[in-house]
Amino acid sequence: MKSTTLAKLMAILFAVVATTLLCTVGIQAAGKTTITLKGSDTMLPLGQRWAEAYMAQNPNVVIQVTGGGSGVGIAALINGSTDICEASRSIKPAEIDKLKERFNSPGVEIAVARDGLSVYLNEQNPVTELNMAQLKAIYTGEITNWKEIGGPDAKIILYGRENSSGTYSFFKDNVLMGEDFAAQTQTLPGTAAIVNAVAKDKNGIGYGGAAYAKGVRDCKIKKDDKSTGYLPTEENIKAGTYPLSRYLFWYLTSKPTGDIKKLVNYALSETGQKIVREVGYFPVK
């Protein structure tokens, strides 16, 4: 350990780091604070509404909201390019491991809203309800014609999300039980695109957030063929009778502090949860 020159060099280096750190904090305190939200397309309208409302009350804060999918948001959180990740699925163990490597923390999960994952049908489609097994069979390609499930003699056209989407992962884990989607599933970039496609295609079927179901019809979902079918309403989701309900999350690298903590508190406040309901999702409280 005999090296006074190198020891001095290291001491200088640590001093430079400490000074830069303090300067960075100082600059942030003096100017406008920018908070970035990135991730789930399902949560995009919700994030945007929160941001607009919060910025109107806090002019010194700029909130940038972008989509791309839950997987993209979590990747951005891991590489440090977003402050908050919006995700419509839980973070995966492998992603937690990456957070531990980069930020010495498994991350912080905050449930900010609830959602019923809707199964969209065209308004002309006579099918009104499906059970979970049928839904799985449709999306894995075992059932390919509507007549097999009480509909017209027509080929089922499958619409789904890209694999970076949290909605895709949730559907795959909870409906397909981990199996692959049928090869003929048409992947579309965003829930709005799926709703649009099903609205125009009388033989189409899609899935996505309840807030998007405009111009299409929600399908009742049954746990099995003997149980009752339920629509993704607030009442059914709160009661736990709708089989495809999920939480929508915000993920952070560590416990929120400063402006980020204020934003989290706002999203969970009565006003923030009122916005959740206005957008078409359901409050967590």
Partner: peptide
């Protein structure tokens, strides 16, 4: 063994 702590305002400790 690895242990993670989130106690300091500057970020996580391991």
């Amino acid at each position: 063994a690895q242990a993670y702590f989130d106690m300091l305002p500057v970020g996580g400790s391991a």
